[in-house]
Write a protein that binds this DNA or RNA. Sequence first.
RNA 1: UGGCAGGUGGUGUAAAGGUAGCACAGGAGAUUUUGGUUCUCUUAGUCAGGGUUCGAAUCCUUGCCCGCCAACCA
Length: 555
Amino acid sequence: MVDEKKEEKTLNFIEEIVEKDLSENKHGGRVLTRFPPEPNGYLHIGHAKSICLNFGLAQKYGGGTNLRFDDTNPTTEDVEYVDSIKNDVQWLGFNWVEERYASDYFDQLYAFAVKLIEKGLAYVDDSTAEEIAALKGTPTEPGKPGPYRDRAVAENLELFERMRKGEFAEGSRVLRAKIDLASPNMHLRDPFMYRIKFAHHHRTGDKWCIYPMYDFAHGQSDAIEKITHSICTLEFIPHRALYDWFIEKLDIFPSKQYEFARLNLTYTVMSKRKLLQLVQEGHVSGWDDPRMPTISGLRRRGYTPASIRNFCERIGVARRDNLIDMSLLEFCVREDLNAIAPRRMAVLDPLKVVITNYPEGREEMCLSENNPEKPETGDREMPFSRELYIEQDDFMENPPKKYFRLAPGQMVRLKSAYIIRCDEVVKNAEGTIEEVRCTYIENSKSGQDESGLKVKGTLHWVSAAHSIPVEIRQYDRLFRVEDPASQEGDFKEYLNPDSLSIITARAEPAFKTATPGEAFQLLRKGYFSVDSDSVDGKVVLNQTVGLRDNWAKGN
RNA sequence: UGGCAGGUGGUGUAAAGGUAGCACAGGAGAUUUUGGUUCUCUUAGUCAGGGUUCGAAUCCUUGCCCGCCAACCA
């Protein structure tokens, strides 16, 4: 008997559109989306939302997705970005049908432009940028025609050809669509189609000195690829009329544009321009700094592809502006890592514990489970000896009432080892605690406990002599305020100066074999990922996220 | 103050004229050799006013609030 109650997940508005199109057999039931990054920066978590939407939609409806680079502005674009983008999309777990570039279509786009000129729908404008702006009007006043608007078709054709040949100076002429200078939609007031740029393109080299604008490249590229659903963010809503206009006048494949609200996350920024500034001005170590909201930063921080995909699933897709709580992202990564990350012990802020009734020189092994969520992963051995380390904050000389940890006269369990009782506190001349002296209960060893004792607290620990030093990089939010982009003044004034702190911890010997990219849970501390800076003999751990801590919450 | 697009608990997101639900966050408890996990329970919402209707988050209307649009950026 199978319970047929499959939770019916409601469709988001784009899925509804696709299902409606499918039910009407539009495009013969074909679904083809595209993810269209401009290769002028690294991908961030906001792009992940778009990637999951585009690829996820196609997957769900038996279609495919093209990866298309919107590379129409050679002055800001670079192959470094192309490579990182491809890597990030694949890392997230998606495969594209075809890898395309808007620049693949430059010849076709040029032919499209000629066609519009021939139809009297485009013209070459010799005005300066200032003159054009002045004649464009404002949102409340219509624009006025400039002196070149009614040039003859033949003259436009000749001028456009000469633009392409490089006969005119950069910025001296543009090709504009002839639409409606009085339109309330500013994007329809004779938008630019081509501008002159004597710039080297990362793919076409020096073949071109004129480059199409976004509006004359994106929709046409969609049409050339026969994209059925072209999904973009809300700020492109005013462009949709233009998108449709070009497709109609060119009489090409009728791709349709749909807009959704981009992702915003608390305590970070989500614009490539701002992220680039953080990198260039050295506020972070690079695009993949673990504090960055970039895919590469999150990856280095220890976020898993599954956790990011789940996050994108949970935040939903709608058309209202949003600011998602960072705690949801953290929840998603804990959820995934809890299931898969092997447990280890490390003491971040060591306090020496001497077991006075444990013979000097003796050592024994304790077995500790690798992951209680996955018993099949077995146990590992941890050495136990007379001198140990525990966390400073796991001991208090004068504890409050519900303190379950170590205190004079109080007993605790050392995880996977013995129960110990604190007998004595040793201080130095200044009165600071140097070590804590305890006795262990001989018949209380984990797995063979015959002591009958019940203790409230269990502590993580390492054997002082056997432990190895590891560098731990702990991260806090990059900004001090929830929404740095909407603050007064420069967003960088709101950077959190304490977003990174580096300490040396004492870790159990199993860390000797840790390799970059591996994820662990440090018991009672959090999830950590082995950083690529790790070298032989020196392990570096990035804190991905802390464990939930109900004790800290109430204190 | 022109056009466009929006406004559902603290944060997101559902409910397509018929019981305002789910997740995160918050709170209480149980279990626990991680103050983790897990499991219960729980606080809290339809921007405001008017209208249509037996019935409105949903339709109409007025107002308020937020966002976007006047780059040779995408």
